[in-house]
């Protein structure tokens, strides 16, 4: 058990932090929702009603989709784009999907390689892209969830202010949908771009996200 906790500390601590933050979001979101209800002359709702509302759902999903979009773009973007000097980038001469020798694929697989790296055909093609496929799938699923919950929350708001509700397709053209979507995308793109460039010049001793403290600024793909 101690060994499991030690070996999985990163995944466990972040998962626990996620649950605590989600709990905090539920409490703050409920209070914020009710203060708006009161200011509109409507009745406040219970925590149970808030947690089963599309208003809570859309607030959760809009952030999830942008995180998975970020990972999808980063995983795919770093195959083809480099940032000279960044530990987040591969070396400029390695641009592209690289050779089977470098990637330990097919007959170049090691005895300890995952079976699907060696087997060839569709299974190796799928496994070779599985990280991007899962991140992309989660992005599409969470963006869809955002659109459906956002649509329901938008219509509830429209009805409470005596305006016409819209269809799901209609909601995809509404400013509310794109405001929620793009405010999350812009922050992810800024954070990733600035991080990739900052890590050329800045160091965090001991972090695999950083180059070694004494590494040259021009050293690319040299993680500490």
């Amino acid at each position: 058990m101690r060994r499991f906790l030690h070996d999985n500390a990163l995944g466990l601590v972040f998962g626990l932090g996620f649950l605590l933050a989600l709990g905090g979001q539920a409490i703050a979101g409920h209070a914020d929702f009710n203060s708006q209800q009161i200011s509109h002359g409507a009745e406040p709702i219970s925590m149970g009603a808030y947690l089963t509302s599309s208003s809570f759902g859309v607030d959760v999903a809009e952030n999830w989709q942008s995180e998975y979009l970020q990972f999808l773009l980063y995983v795919l973007g770093t195959v083809w784009l480099v940032q000279r000097g960044s530990p987040e980038s591969k070396k400029p001469e390695d641009i592209g999907t690289e050779s089977d020798v470098d990637q330990l694929v097919g007959r170049h697989a090691r005895p300890t390689s995952p079976a699907w790296a060696r087997i060839g055909g569709v299974r190796t093609a799928l496994y070779s892209n599985s990280l991007g496929l899962v991140m992309g799938g989660l992005f599409l699923l969470s963006w869809t969830a955002q659109s459906i919950a956002g649509w329901a929350a938008y219509n509830a708001d429209q009805i409470s202010t005596r305006q016409d509700p819209t269809t799901w397709l209609g909601y995809l053209g509404e400013a509310d949908f794109w405001n929620r979507t793009l405010q999350n995308w812009q922050s992810e793109l800024l954070a990733v771009g600035s991080f990739a460039v900052a890590a050329v010049y800045l160091r965090q001793r001991g972090s695999p996200e950083s180059k070694p403290v004494g590494a040259e600024h021009a050293d690319t793909a040299d993680t500490g």
């Binding site: 089963t52 999903a61 969830a145």
Partner: peptide, 30 residues
């Protein structure tokens, strides 16, 4: 690595169930 595989499956399951829950809330017009 059995425990790690379990953690990976737990993460994916929670994410997919969470998103399914949000989709159902929206589809029901809650």
């Amino acid at each position: 690595m059995t425990g790690t595989r379990w953690l990976f499956v737990l993460y994916l399951t929670l994410i997919v169930l969470g998103l399914a829950y949000v989709i159902v809330l929206g589809a029901l017009g809650r």
